[in-house]
Computed example of a mutant assay.
Amino acid sequence: MKLLFIGARLFDDVAIYTKEKGINTVITESNPHAQNLDLADSYHIVPRGMEQPKEIAIKEDVDGVVPLIGIDGPLKELALLKEELERDYSLPVVASPLESVSIAGNKVKTKEFLLKNDIKTPEYDLISSGQKIPKEYPLVLKQAHGQGGKDIKITLSQEDVHSYLEKYGTALAERFIDGIEISVEILRWKNHSVPLVPVSKGKTTLDGIHPLEKLKKAPLHIDDITLEAETNNYNQAIRNIASDVADRLNIEGTADLDLIFDKSNKNTYVLEINTRPSGTRYLTAASSDINPLHEIVDMATGSWQNINVSKRMKDYYALEIPVGDYFSGKNNYHFREFHGENSWIIHGPSNHQRITIRGKDEKNALKTAAQLNLNLDNIKN
């Protein structure tokens, strides 16, 4: 079995898994200085775009293609590659099709899709310079394209809005919701969906702190929901929403859904859909024992079964803590898997490292954090 991986940056998360499975691995990468190139059996430095990966996939006679792309920019071109390789060469490409990517990659189209399918999402307006400006604040302004908090501003006055519009001209405007940010990853292949564990990415803040800088937890627990049965029911409701969105949008491979719990009215709203590997994948793996990137490898080899994933899911407690720089020899591919009930991994680039902890329960996870000398009191959540 031979697989082509497009992109080297995330390959360290699957390098050991592919070796264990006896898979011959080939990487295409546009950056000759990218990390993880030597972890594959072979690699090719190629120009940006999908033309060279397509030619290499055909020439190398691979059995499947696994894109390891964590940014939105190349996803449309990737979807076109998928269409061609699957149609003309019967070669599976574990990525979402063009229509799915086009909707998910545009916040306005995403809103239209959600409303059309009666899926709750915050009310919005499209505003531009010279138009009447909303008077209710705080107001969240966004651009149609962008990820990771890019070009998002929480405005507190008309002056803030005018300043934003002077720079961008137009904006998608939503009311600011005082609540909890939520993420849930979804696996979907051959019309079968498996929503994974809902993750809490912390409380919303007026200063717009990105979730990467917050303490994150899994499984999700809302303080207003006190009984375990209520929490379980709420988490299942989140998973049901994720599965519904994935099926309606025809997502393939791995994706994640961003939602928000509104503390004022107790409603849950869908914000965004991301048809690519998620930044919460370590929390997902820690809490459920399901590694989304391993699962997309199985999809490419033809061994993936949704029923088996559901049977393998565990119920651990997990924390993810931003640490900036933390001295450890474990920040490499040899230590990217969780073992047993109480374990931890470190990941991320210099200055932006994070430690993800698995515990049998919350008490054990906090005990591990203390053993690592991590002070959680100063981290927003």
Rank of each mutant, 00 (worst) to 15 (best):
T356Q: 08
E362M: 14
R276D: 13
N117W: 11
D247E: 15
E166A: 12
T121G: 07
D38S: 15
D298I: 00
K153Q: 14
I16P: 00
G169P: 11
E213W: 14
R354M: 12
K330P: 00
N351P: 00
D256H: 15
T155Q: 07
V46S: 05
D151E: 15
R312D: 06
K217V: 13
V161N: 09
H294G: 08
K111H: 08
E20W: 09
P92V: 04
G73S: 05
K2Q: 14
F176L: 13
D61H: 10
V101M: 00
A300N: 03
K311M: 14
H145I: 15
F327L: 14
D244S: 11
E136C: 01
I23A: 04
F176C: 14
K214T: 10
I357A: 07
L319A: 03
G149H: 12
T268M: 13
M1A: 13
N117I: 12
I238G: 11
Y43T: 02
K135H: 11
Y89A: 08
V66G: 10
G146Q: 08
H145F: 15
K266P: 06
R87G: 00
A104T: 10
I209V: 15
N291Y: 03
P292M: 14
E185W: 02
R239W: 05
A144I: 09
D258M: 05
G22W: 08
L293I: 10
P97T: 06
I290Q: 10
I16S: 10
D262G: 03
V309D: 08
V323L: 11
A40D: 08
V26W: 03
S128I: 00
L220K: 07
P349A: 02
L249H: 07
P211G: 02
G202I: 05
R188I: 07
I182E: 14
I296G: 05
I45N: 09
I133N: 09
D361K: 06
H192L: 04
S129L: 13
N240W: 01
L271A: 02
Q353D: 00
K214F: 08
D256Q: 06
G329R: 13
D247T: 13
L257R: 01
D325H: 03
Y316E: 07
H33G: 08
A95W: 03
F113D: 05
D361A: 05
